[in-house]
Design a protein around this nucleic acid. Sequence first.
DNA 1: GTGGTCTAGACCACG
DNA 2: GTGGTCTAGACCACC
Lengths: 132, 132, 132, 132
Amino acid sequence: MHTLNGQFLAIDTASRKPIYEQLADGLKALIARGDLREGVTLPPVRQLAADLGVNLNTVAVAYRQLQDEGLITVRHGSGAVVSSRTLAAQTEEDLRKPLRSALTQLVLSGMPVSRIMRMVSAELRFLTKGAK
Amino acid sequence: MHTLNGQFLAIDTASRKPIYEQLADGLKALIARGDLREGVTLPPVRQLAADLGVNLNTVAVAYRQLQDEGLITVRHGSGAVVSSRTLAAQTEEDLRKPLRSALTQLVLSGMPVSRIMRMVSAELRFLTKGAK
Amino acid sequence: MHTLNGQFLAIDTASRKPIYEQLADGLKALIARGDLREGVTLPPVRQLAADLGVNLNTVAVAYRQLQDEGLITVRHGSGAVVSSRTLAAQTEEDLRKPLRSALTQLVLSGMPVSRIMRMVSAELRFLTKGAK
Amino acid sequence: MHTLNGQFLAIDTASRKPIYEQLADGLKALIARGDLREGVTLPPVRQLAADLGVNLNTVAVAYRQLQDEGLITVRHGSGAVVSSRTLAAQTEEDLRKPLRSALTQLVLSGMPVSRIMRMVSAELRFLTKGAK
DNA sequence: GTGGTCTAGACCACG
DNA sequence: GTGGTCTAGACCACC
C-alpha cells in the first residue's frame, strides 16, 4: 500500500497553481528526497485520485508530466515506476527563472539575506535528507 | 528616458506563465535591485506595451498587480510611481512553496548542492546589487 | 439554476462607477445577505455576462476582485465558489470614508437625521436579512 | 484668509478616488457642518490649489461640481460663494446606492451591526455638529 | 464546459 | 498625454 506523505502531496484547490502541477511538484520532492527510490511503483492513478479527492484525469496528467521529464516509466497494466532521479536536461535559464522569482519575493518581503540563506539551506537539507 | 533592462523584462510568449505575471516579476526584480527606486516613474503603459510588443491591457494588468501589492502608486493622468520596496505581508508558506519547487528542480537536475548554493548566492547578490 | 436577484446585479452603464465594480458590489451584498452562502457556486462568467449583456472580461474582473478579497475561490475548470463571508482586514479609515461620503450626501439632500437613521437601519436589516 | 480644516480637505493621491472628488466631498462635509455657511466665500482656486499642492484645474473641477449641485455660486472676478446647504434634488436611488455599498463593506468586515450603528450615529453627529 | 489570457481597437476620465 | 474601462472575439488550460 502506498501512503505517501501528506506533507508533500497536500493539494490546495484555492491556489492558482494547477492541481496537477502541485501533484507533480510533490512527487518530485519525494523522488529528490529518496522517499521514492528507483524501482518503486507509484500508487495507481485511481487510488491516488481517490485518496486526494481529485479527478482521475488530474492525477494522470501529473504522472504524464513526470514521464515526460524522464523521472518515471509508465507501463500499461503494471503501473508507474520511478526510473531515475535525474531530470531530462533543462536549460540553465529554465532552472534560474523560478529561482529568481522565488528569491525576489523573499527579498521584497523584507526578509534579511542571511535569513533567506538559512531558509534555502534548510530546504536543501530537507530535499536531500541531509545526505548526499 | 525609460529603457528598462531587457534582461528583466524579456517576455517569453511560449511560457505557461502569463505575460502580465512575467512582467510583474521582472518589475519586482528591478525594484528589489533598486534599479527602480522609490519615486521613480514607470514607463507609460502604452510605451512599455509597444516596446515589448504586447497589448496595452496586458501591461495594465501587470501594473495593477503591483499596485495591489503596494509596490507602486498609480496616479491617474500622471503615471505609475514606485512607492515602496516592501511587499505586503505574506505567509511564510506562500514564500516557501515556490522556493521549494525551484530548488527541487535544481536538485533533480543533478546539480550538486554546493553549486546550487553558489547559484542562490549569486542571485541574491544580483537582486541586492551586492549592497544593502 | 442561477437566477441572481436582478435588484442587486442591476448594472448602470451610465454610472461613473465601473461595471465590474458595480458587479462586485452587488455580489458582495448577496454574500452579506447570505443569498449566496459558503459553498454556493456562482454563475459561470460567460452566463452572467450574457444575462447582463456585458463582456465576459468585465465579469471576470469582478470575480477576480472578489477572489483577491478572499470572498470566493475560483477553481479552474469548475467554477467560482463562495468561500467566506468575511473580508480581509481593512483600515477603519477605509471603511469610514465611503460611509461619511454617503451620509454627507444624505444630510445635504435635506433629509432629516431621524429619517437617515431609519434608512440606515432598513439597509442594515436588509443586508443581514434581519437575522444574525 | 481661508484656512480650511485639513481633516476634511486631506487629499490622498494614492486613492483610486479622483482628487477633484475627494475635494468636493471634503467641501460638502464642511458645508453640511456649517463650517462654511451661506454667503461665505470659498478660497480662490489658485490659493487652494497651492495650499493642497494639486493642479489648478483639479480644484476648478471640484468647484464646478459643487456649482452643478447647487451648493455654490461662482461669480467671475469675485470668487465662489456658498449659496445653499441643500443639494439639487437626487433620486433616492442615487443616495441609497453609495450608502448600501459602504454598509456592505462594513458588514462583510465582520463589524457587529450594533457597532456599525454607533459609527453611523457618530458620523451623523459629526456632520451636523450635534446640532439640528 | 469551466475559467484564463491575450489582442485590437474604441472611448472616457484625469491632471 | 496619462491611465482606465469596455468590447468582440480568438485561443488555451483545467477538470
